[in-house]
């Protein structure tokens, strides 16, 4: 069921509603909240949550044989309304990074109010997911992120069944993120990064849809007579098990691999060429074996920018980073 949870008025008098979709009852079973659209250009997340909402509607109407909602689920598919409307990463009016606006303020400006509304509607959930991808200049492997050492979140990530889970450090910046605020309130919270920002990959969305259905079954908010969650080997990578490869030169970066590739030491990932002469300035190679989880796809690079992110279990690195 689609419910309006906030209405904002533009200076020209138009109302802009914020909606959530809800299924089941919070009075029985566990509760799951999913929030997407934290930036205006995260199309995989939008598609994924629309697909999931359609499925849950069908379950509620009895049109999805063998499925039954056993707890409660709510999805807020578009958080950063005005950025979605302007088709930009941030809302151009305030240019604030919405992902760093939490817990928000209910008497503040639109960004504060939306952030507070999202927080208020979700912080009492047992489980929560922020569907959020990062920089449009990078291709990212679909993966989950959680704060390093968060056991509740690890268990939830295990149920999601994605190949890679990155455990991130908590910093002075990340404490303003929605998942950090959820964690503060004892919610088992994850960030689901659904691939690349600014593009739509329907195949990936369909795959992630299946993963979310499995997560809901595992979390006890959805029952299924027929479906058994697929067993996938999930690897958790601590901050020490990540390495970022940076550019020593500025120029045009031409990638030669794709995210998801398993690399060996010495494998070439791409090269940087001089924009004027075309001369190769630098070849980027893997320093050790690992899984490529992030790769620069926006070709213009500054010196010292990250070109690729590799993860590998520590025991597999030939030397320490």
């Amino acid at each position: 069921m689609k419910k309006q949870i906030l209405s904002l008025t533009t200076p020209l008098g138009q109302s802009v509603p914020l909606y959530k979709n809800v299924w089941g009852s919070t009075k029985k079973g566990k509760s799951l909240s999913i929030v997407g659209g934290l930036r205006g250009n995260q199309f995989n997340g939008m598609r994924l949550l629309a697909r999931l909402s359609g499925f849950l509607d069908a379950v509620e109407k009895g049109e999805a044989a063998g499925f039954e909602i056993s707890g409660s689920v709510q999805i807020i598919p578009l958080g950063n309304l005005f950025a979605v409307q302007s088709g930009t990463r941030n809302w151009t009016f305030d240019n604030l990074n919405f992902d760093l606006a939490f817990p928000g303020y209910d008497q503040g400006e639109p960004t504060d109010r939306i952030a507070h509304c999202l927080y208020r509607h979700t912080f009492e959930s047992d489980f929560a997911l922020a569907v959020h991808s990062y920089d449009a200049r990078y291709q990212e492997l679909a993966h989950a992120r959680l704060f390093h050492g968060d056991r509740k979140a690890r268990k939830l990530a295990d149920g999601l069944g994605l190949r890679a889970v990155r455990e991130i450090r908590e910093t002075s910046v990340s404490e303003l993120q929605l998942i950090s605020q959820w964690r503060e309130r004892g919610v088992a919270a994850l960030m689901l990064c659904p691939g690349e920002t600014g593009t739509l990959d329907t195949g990936l969305c369909e795959n992630l849809f299946g993963k979310l259905v499995d997560l809901m079954i595992g979390a006890g908010v959805l029952n299924s007579a027929n479906r058994t969650p697929e067993k996938t080997e999930v690897s958790f990578y601590s901050p020490k098990e990540e390495v970022e490869l940076k550019s020593s030169y500025a120029g045009l970066f031409i990638p030669e691999r794709s995210v998801g590739d398993e690399l060996r030491a010495g494998d070439k990932l791409g090269e940087i060429r001089d924009i004027y002469s075309g001369e190769i300035l630098e070849e980027i190679t893997a320093p050790g074996e690992g899984l490529l989880v992030g790769l620069r796809v926006y070709p213009l690079v500054y010196q010292s920018e990250t070109l690729a992110t590799l993860v590998a279990k520590k025991s597999r690195w030939p030397f320490s980073f």
């Binding site: 030169y249 500025a250 120029g251 045009l252 001089d274 924009i275 004027y276 213009l300 690079v301 500054y302 010196q303 010292s304």
Partner: peptide, 10 residues
């Protein structure tokens, strides 16, 4: 100092 893609240092 770091180089921009144009080769101009920032």
């Amino acid at each position: 100092q770091y180089q921009s893609p144009l080769g101009v240092p920032v």
